[in-house]
C-alpha cells in the first residue's frame, strides 16, 4: 500500500500533474489527461476566458474528475501575478494557484524575489499557493515558511526536455522540505520522471514532453507508468549503487583473522 500524496489537506492518488499548453487540439489534450491518470491539471490563465463556462479549453476538462490548477504564466512581477490570481479566484472560486513569475520571456526562468513577494501576499489572502521556482533550497524553505502548500522546483528550463539538470540541488530540496516537492519543468522523457520519483520527489508536473510527442496520448500513459514505477522504487528502498564488488574487507579483515 503506497503512501498517498496530500497537498493542503487534499489527497491525490496520482503523483503526475499535467499541463495543458501546446496540444494540437483540445480533444487530444483531454485524451492525454485521461491517459495520464493525473488528478491535477494546470491551465494558464492567459490562455482561457476563466469566467466563461463555454471556453473551449476549460470545457474540455472535466472539473468533477480533475482539480483545476490555474497558473499565472506570463506574469513578470508580483503585482501582475497577484492581480491575475485575484481576478481568477473572483471569477471561479478556485483557491489553488500555481504561482509563476517569469520575467524573462525566453527561458521562462522564475524570479525568486517577486515569487516570494507574491506568495506572501497570496497565502495571507487564503490562496493555496504552489510556487514554480528554480532549484534553490533556501528559496524553497522561505516559501515553505511563508505558507506555500508545495514547492515546484524546475529540473531544467521549461519546455527544454533536458531532464534532471539540477539534480544535486533537487536532492537537497527533497531532503529538507516539510511540504511536498513537485518537480516541474524540463522532464523530457518518462525515464526522467521516473528518476525524479526514485529520488524521492513527491510528484512531477509534465507538459511539453507529452503535448509535443508524436502520440501525446500514448506518451501520457508512458509517463503515468514511469511515475508509478519511480514512486514504487523509492518506497521499496533502492539498494546502494556500488562501484565494484566488495567481497573482502581490505582494511578491517585483519580483525577477524
Amino acid at each position: 500500500m503506497s503512501d498517498k500524496l496530500i497537498i493542503a489537506g487534499r489527497e491525490f492518488a496520482s503523483r503526475l500533474f499535467i499541463g495543458t499548453g501546446k496540444f494540437a487540439s483540445n480533444k487530444i489534450m483531454a485524451e492525454a489527461i485521461e491517459a495520464s491518470g493525473a488528478e491535477m491539471v494546470t491551465v494558464a490563465l492567459r490562455r482561457v476566458d476563466i469566467d466563461n463556462p463555454d471556453d473551449d479549453m476549460l470545457s474540455a476538462i472535466d472539473r468533477k474528475k480533475y482539480l483545476l490548477l490555474p497558473n499565472t504564466s506570463g506574469a513578470r512581477n508580483a503585482d501582475e501575478a497577484v492581480r491575475l490570481a485575484r481576478l481568477a479566484r473572483a471569477a471561479t472560486g478556485i483557491e489553488w494557484l500555481k504561482l509563476e513569475v517569469t520575467p524573462d520571456p525566453y527561458y521562462l526562468l522564475p524570479d525568486p524575489v517577486e515569487t516570494l513577494k507574491a506568495a506572501e501576499i497570496l497565502v495571507k489572502e487564503g490562496f493555496v499557493v504552489l510556487p514554480y521556482i528554480n532549484a534553490d533550497a533556501v528559496l524553497a524553505k522561505r516559501l515553505q515558511d511563508a505558507g506555500c502548500a508545495t514547492v515546484m522546483p524546475l529540473a531544467s528550463p521549461i519546455g527544454s526536455n533536458q531532464g534532471l539538470k539540477t539534480k544535486a540541488s533537487l536532492e537537497i530540496i527533497i531532503s529538507q522540505a516539510r511540504v511536498p516537492v513537485v518537480i516541474d519543468a524540463g522532464l523530457g522523457a518518462p525515464s526522467h520522471a521516473s528518476e525524479a520519483m526514485e529520488m524521492g520527489a513527491d510528484a512531477v508536473l509534465v507538459n511539453t514532453a507529452i503535448a509535443a510527442a508524436k502520440e501525446p496520448v500514448k506518451m501520457a500513459a508512458a509517463f503515468r507508468k514511469a511515475v508509478e514505477a519511480g514512486r514504487e522504487a523509492f518506497e521499496a528502498g533502492k539498494a546502494d549503487v556500488k562501484q565494484q564488488a566488495d567481497a573482502s574487507s581490505p582494511l578491517t579483515g585483519f580483525l577477524r583473522d
Binding site: 487540439s25 492567459r46 506570463g74 513578470r76 492581480r83 491575475l84
Partner: peptide, 17 residues
C-alpha cells in the same frame, strides 16, 4: 490550422497583465 494538426489560439494573454 486544425486540419494541419495545429490548434488555433485566440487568447494567449490577459488584460490583467
Amino acid at each position: 490550422l486544425k486540419s494541419a494538426g495545429l490548434e488555433p489560439v485566440w487568447k494567449d494573454w490577459d488584460k490583467a497583465f
